[in-house]
Computed example of a mutant assay.
Amino acid sequence: MAFEQFMPGATAVGIAFADGVVLAAEKRVSFGTYVVSRSGKKVFKITERVGAACAGMVADMQILMRQVESIARLKSFEIRREVPPNSIGKLVSVLLFERRYFPLLTQIIIGGIDVYTEKPAIYTLDPLGSILPDDYAAVGTGAEMAIGVIESAYRPDMNEQEARDLTLKAIRAAVARDAASGDGVDMLIITKNGCKEESLMLKLS
């Protein structure tokens, strides 16, 4: 399709480690060969224990995440406890599938800590709402490079620092080979104690 050359590039990664998950995405927003922004944010906090990293159309991911955050907040008031990541993943899946004839052009990684089991969880979704659970995931134009780096070094028993370092290594590899990705990384680290956000520039050398 002629429109494919204007699809925005991106690299987003999610990794589950022993005590939580790391979600990260690079900052570059491109439109074809034109760099629209070097400070786009593609990582979103949904609840205190669930977040998302996205690739694709920034407007689509922003409006979807706002909707999901609002519904999750209302649901938590209703059930009087936090909404677990699998429920957030199913909600996003339904919202995407409802729009399947005019889809939201975004790929999503949902990650968080299950409020019942205290175990980390990662889910990957495509624009039509397909949902797949996994220990790690990568989406976007740089996904092929990133997933190869993760697979070569991933261990389920990694600690937070090891998972963070592997996430940065994966995105750095993607940025070095994908012209549509770059300009820094936004990161969300979620554990049973809560979540923390981090933003940093990448050094490729």
Rank of each mutant, 00 (worst) to 15 (best):
D114T: 06
V115W: 14
T117H: 09
E118D: 15
E118C: 12
K119L: 10
K119M: 09
K119Y: 13
K119D: 04
A121N: 08
A121W: 10
I122Q: 10
I122W: 10
Y123M: 07
Y123G: 06
T124W: 11
L125K: 10
L125N: 08
D126Y: 14
D126C: 05
L128H: 15
G129P: 15
G129N: 11
G129V: 05
G129W: 15
G129K: 11
S130Y: 15
S130I: 11
S130R: 15
S130G: 12
I131H: 12
I131T: 13
L132Q: 14
P133S: 05
P133G: 04
P133C: 01
P133A: 01
D134C: 15
D135Y: 14
Y136D: 05
A137Y: 10
A138S: 14
A138P: 08
A138V: 02
G140Q: 12
G140A: 10
G140V: 04
T141K: 12
T141D: 08
T141C: 07
T141Y: 11
T141Q: 09
G142R: 04
G142I: 00
A143Y: 11
A143E: 09
A143T: 03
A143P: 03
A143K: 14
E144M: 04
E144F: 06
E144I: 00
M145I: 00
A146E: 05
A146P: 14
I147D: 02
G148D: 08
G148M: 06
V149Q: 07
I150C: 07
I150V: 06
E151W: 14
S152C: 09
S152G: 12
S152A: 15
S152F: 09
A153W: 11
A153E: 10
A153D: 09
A153V: 04
Y154M: 05
Y154G: 07
R155S: 13
R155W: 07
R155H: 13
P156V: 02
D157E: 15
D157Q: 13
D157G: 08
D157N: 13
D157F: 15
M158I: 03
M158D: 03
M158T: 04
N159G: 08
E160S: 08
E160I: 05
E160W: 12
Q161D: 12
Q161M: 08
Q161G: 08
E162L: 01
E162T: 02
A163V: 03
R164K: 15
R164V: 10
R164T: 14
R164D: 11
D165N: 11
D165Q: 12
D165I: 05
L166Y: 02
L166I: 01
L166A: 02
L166C: 01
T167D: 09
T167G: 11
T167M: 13
L168A: 06
K169M: 09
A170T: 02
A170C: 06
A170V: 01
I171K: 00
I171A: 00
I171F: 00
I171T: 02
I171C: 00
R172V: 02
A173N: 09
A173I: 00
A173R: 08
A174E: 02
V175W: 01
V175C: 00
A176Q: 07
R177Q: 04
R177M: 01
R177S: 01
R177I: 00
R177A: 01
D178A: 03
D178W: 00
A179L: 03
A179G: 07
